[in-house]
Nucleic acid binder design. Structure first.
Lengths: 344, 344
DNA sequence: TTGTAGGCGTTATCAT
DNA sequence: ATGATAACGCCTACAA
């Protein structure tokens, strides 16, 4: 007896289709073992009743939730973009995305995240940097048998649980660009040393410089914190030297903006006197004057790949996930903030 | 018979505490009708077993999900911030946040969102602008008996379902600021007319000007689209006139950046020749040179208030939700992009 | 290929 | 105050 005021259940469908719940269940779950005629009949009734299976009941019975977690630290545009890409894939696959913000620095990070996974009964989680770099967290998730995909910048652990950003090509391109413009005194502003992605950008840049036989002396280096202010501080240090760099590569856009501001205040013209390069491709990098040469991350591609990989891992296991790509490459985009090195 | 390899269930707790499931359930749900001694006993066992109730079973039995939806359109920093604030409140309350991106312009918006709510079995949703301005959507949600809170800029419908941003105080402050600096020829760049928040900013600004006996003639107005490019186009139109404005108020920061860029290219100095004001308080507004005077939204306060209101609505009904504040006020922050009107 | 019966972990009803 | 028992809506043996 179906109450018209409530959502139809699998029973209503079964009754109306003149079959059993079991068969309806088979249709829903795309079991091949069902007569084409009955399948059509069931589908029609589903359509007519506008029936959607109750995910709670489904989850309870099958010990699945059809819920994916997204774990990150600070709210940034990067997060928002990845989230967007994840949603696209999940929409089609019939999953929902549950978000969770946490603190990498926290002593309770692992407890916090594992509790979240248990509480929400997640089928799997996607972990964004810098949380993704915590090996202990990955271990704990493994231990509790929770599928996950890490977005990171360093290959570590099984590749089918990761999407790794390969900085090499883009940073090589960028370095070639600067060198071909005549720059030799190139300075670097790093992110915090605790960030793996930050260390990685540094290492790769050193390597790229070495390819051209260029060194990075101590006075051409400054440690930042991925913030605008830290970029300002670093730039002041670098630019106030007697022999100052003709180009500065900042490990993210925000710090690069800090550099531009300082240069501006010191009367150093960009790109005439100083070339500046950022990293991330934030929207503002196109707005700032002059527009910032930077390295653009392909967030959409990353999110897409990572989510599909995670779903494959959940639904078909590691072998299926292994079939997906592991590396993604950002791309260098030269704009107005880089130009020929000053001849003087 | 508790299998040590699996999560403990309510049965395990009941057995160990020497009581029935029903009593354990009462303890979990804070029913007052339970002996203090037994309550303590049960709580101890729960602690000992590290038991957490299964939210799927709970939801199935109580037809609740303990899931809240967050509905928005484009991924922005504003979204990420609101999301963060929502998570804080939900964490404590034992709810999770499921996100959903959609397209305001889509013909299937309503169908899309309602399907999402049904699919995920949400207990309630928070709706961000511009989606929050679609009355038909609110109606549909009402019809399907789904609780929601709208974040918007216009009071419409029941106040306990809304958190409204009151632009008046901040825009008044800003206008007073400009006028006291001697500006009379103030131009305005609006957002798209389809956005309620955009229209609202316009109306309030007009009113603020009128308080000073100032009009906004047609040649001092331009319609933008909340994008950088549209700011550029609008600025070119406004600044290429023979009698150009001495100040421009753009309805968001991005368009203000466009204005600054155009001014820069035309050799118009900011703030000496032209004052510029934005709206939103994006991080970049502090980085740009000169830093942008703008109106800052208090996202954290908004998110906090809205989420608490939604939870009250869900758990205790409209009366409880009615006890919460409805209005929030952004705040004008003068910075370097505004200065005395040029005397010439 | 299809149906029957039992269970997933809670909450709700109604006794006691 | 407490407890047996029946939902909740679906899935999974197992049987037919």
């Amino acid at each position: 007896m179906s109450d018209p005021g409530k959502q139809p259940t699998i029973n209503d469908v079964a009754d109306l289709a003149g079959t059993s719940k079991r068969t309806v269940s088979r249709v829903i779950n795309r079991s091949p073992k069902v007569n084409e005629a009955t399948r059509m009949r069931v589908l029609e009734v589903i359509e007519k009743l506008n029936y959607t299976p109750n995910r709670q009941a489904r989850g309870l019975a099958a010990s699945r939730s059809y819920l994916l977690g997204l774990i990150y630290d600070l709210p940034t545009l990067f997060i928002a973009d990845i989230q967007k890409g994840m949603l696209n894939v999940c929409e089609e696959a019939g999953y929902e995305v549950v978000v969770h913000a946490c603190h990498v620095e926290s002593d309770h990070l692992i407890e916090d995240v594992t509790r979240f996974v248990k509480r929400a009964h997640l089928d799997g989680v996607a972990i964004l940097p810098p949380v993704s770099d915590i090996e202990e967290l990955a271990d704990s998730l493994d231990k509790m048998d929770c599928r996950y995909v890490r977005f990171s910048s360093k290959l570590g652990g099984e590749p089918w649980k990761q999407v790794v950003t390969d900085y090499m090509p883009a940073i090589m391109d960028m370095t070639n660009h600067l060198v071909s413009l005549g720059h030799r005194d190139i300075a670097f502003i790093s992110g915090p040393e605790s960030h793996v992605s930050s260390r990685k950008r540094y290492e790769v840049f050193i390597q790229a410089l070495n390819n051209h036989g260029i060194e990075l002396p101590g006075n051409m280096m400054a440690t930042g914190a991925f913030t605008y202010e830290s970029g300002v501080t670093a730039a002041k240090k670098l630019l106030s030297q007697k022999s100052r760099p003709t180009a500065i590569f900042a490990a993210n856009d925000e710090m690069a903006f800090g550099v531009m501001n300082v240069a501006n205040q010191m009367g150093i013209r960009i790109p005439d006197d100083l070339s500046v390069v950022g990293f991330d491709g934030t929207p503002f990098s196109t707005f700032v004057i002059p527009s910032l040469s930077t390295i653009i991350r392909q967030t959409d591609e990353m999110a897409n790949l990572g989510t599909k990989k995670l779903l494959a891992l959940i639904e078909e296991g590691p072998d299926a996930a292994h079939g997906f790509e592991t590396m993604v490459s950002p791309r260098f985009v030269p704009r107005e903030s880089t130009g020929p090195a000053p001849s003087g």
